[in-house]
Design a protein around this nucleic acid. Structure first.
Length: 442
RNA sequence: CGGGGUAUAGCGCAGCCCGGUAGCGCGGAAGUUUUGGGUACUUCAGGCCGCAGGUUCGAAUCCUGCUACCCCGACCA
């Protein structure tokens, strides 16, 4: 993509409303635009990151055996009256009426709807286990939205819902998601720590929050240092191996880890001094087992091997991709701007032409750009008629992991400069070497 | 939902006390200059001064009401 033809509204100054670094950088980097309290448009650069996050979330959901569908954002109030949550949910739920004065709502979550879909079709235990998920816009009318997309009212959520014959099966479904989440966050270059959590308004008796550590995180967390070095489950882990999956979960829940509301100071203080990590964190995922909470009022039953009807045991599993965009920035930035992990970078390479109009610079850039494009590498080519300083600042701000800098000075020696955004390391290499080196970043 | 605050050009702000018809910096356009870390200078464009009422010869400025947004707290992917 040529920057001169792209839509990247960069801000030089800090918008005053942005308190935390991710919000500030997302606004400055032209990734989002606020359209109302807690409501944001994703601009092209932001959307690229969001889509990459969603793609990874999908891959890991699919790998674990979950199946994607897509439910509507608007739901009928009657569905929620069945579960009793229409009255229970409170003002956080956006309620509206259609032209026939029917009560509708903009879904804050989809347990009722997925249960309705499930009960309409599934009759036999032989069709279980089943885990259905979608990635869809949610609306929760938070009293106080803040921190940009970190706590918006409208946000994107991946929510999965598992259905099992009994609690034993449901626990395995829960464990599968647990493992899928560990893999998902690891692929996003996030160090996630599962912590025992309150089950909140959704209910149930087993729940974990996945917290990532970030100095600017919103909540206080306490955990064992062991979590920082634990190994992520491998890509070829067998999700059907109940015992193996349970072992991974047992391993990942063996150490102390709690948010401030679940914190037990005595247990934490009993840990060796060196093992104690007290830090700030951001919740990026939340999983629940809630048993028959919805199947009972909504009569979601299947015939079991015993010929009798059984209420299904359910769980739900959320990840907030839009929040993750901000969370990754919180965990990965510096004074100059964002630093994207390769897996979610909006472009893999930023190519800066320091002197557009100069035949040698244009030629070298054109060659690098087209040859990398041919190899499937996403390149953002800054071909604007701007000062070098402005280009460096822009590239640093938007945090593309690799920068290729082409200027008359180094080009006189046949070299271009490659800069690693994260480490700041630079090296002068030939055009050919630059193409070879960056060509593997597709 | 309680407490506090702000609304003036795309962004950041001044002007408001003490009414006289709007200004600065950044950004944008044109030009000269400059060319490896947001260059300098010149010119230009851009505002129902959040909305609605009121007071006044005259309101960005004073009064009343409304709305939006932000911050702190309680709640949340």
């Amino acid at each position: 993509m040529r920057l001169s033809r792209y839509f990247l509204p960069i801000l030089k100054e800090n918008p005053k409303e942005a308190e935390i670094v991710s919000h500030r950088l997302m606004l400055r980097g032209g990734m989002i635009r606020q359209e109302g309290a807690g409501i944001y448009a994703f601009l092209p650069l932001g959307l690229r990151v969001l889509n990459k996050i969603c793609a990874i979330v999908r891959e890991e959901q699919n790998r674990s055996g979950a199946i994607e569908l897509l439910m509507p954002t608007l739901q009928s109030a009657d569905l929620w009256r069945e579960s009793g949550r229409y009255d229970a949910y409170g003002k956080e739920m956006l309620r509206l009426k259609d032209r026939h004065e029917r009560d509708m709502l903009y879904g804050p979550t989809n347990e009722e709807m997925i249960t309705e879909i499930f009960r309409a079709y599934v009759r036999s235990y032989k069709d279980l286990p089943l885990n259905l998920y979608h990635i869809q816009t949610k609306f929760r009318d938070e009293v106080r939205p803040r921190f940009g997309v970190m706590r918006g009212r409208e946000f994107l959520m991946k929510d999965a819902y598992s259905f099992d014959l009994d609690e034993k099966g449901a626990r395995h479904s829960y464990n599968k998601m647990f493992v899928a989440y560990l893999r998902t966050f690891a692929r996003l270059s996030l160090k996630s720590i599962p912590m025992r959590a309150e089950t909140g308004p959704i209910g149930g008796d087993l729940s974990h929050e996945f917290i990532i550590l970030a100095s600017t995180g919103e909540s206080e967390v306490f955990c064992h240092r062991g979590y920082l070095t634990m190994e992520t489950p491998a890509a070829d882990v067998n999700f059907d191996d109940t015992a193996a999956i349970a072992r991974i979960v047992a391993d990942w829940t063996s150490h102390y880890a709690a948010t401030s509301d679940m914190h037990e100071a005595a247990k934490f203080d009993a840990l060796p001094e060196a093992a104690r990590v007290s830090a700030r964190g951001i919740e990026v995922g939340h999983i629940f087992y809630f048993g028959t909470k919805y199947s009972e009022p909504m009569k979601a039953v299947v015939n079991g091997p015993d010929g009798k009807e059984h209420l299904i045991h359910g769980g739900s599993y959320g990840i907030g991709p839009s929040r993750l965009v901000a969370a990754i920035i919180e965990a990965s930035h510096d004074e100059a701007g964002m630093i994207w992990p390769e897996a979610v970078a909006p472009f893999a390479v930023g190519l800066a032409n320091l002197k557009p109009g100069d035949a040698a610079c244009d030629g070298a850039c054109g060659r690098i750009y087209s040859e990398l494009a041919a190899k499937g590498v996403d390149v953002l080519y800054d071909d604007r008629d701007e000062r070098p300083g402005a280009k460096f600042a822009t590239l640093d701000l938007i945090g593309l992991p690799h920068q290729a800098i082409v200027g008359p000075k180094s080009l006189a020696e046949g070299k271009v400069e490659l800069k690693d955004r994260r480490s700041g390391e630079r090296e002068l290499v030939s055009v050919e070497a630059a193409i070879a080196k960056l060509g593997g970043k597709a």
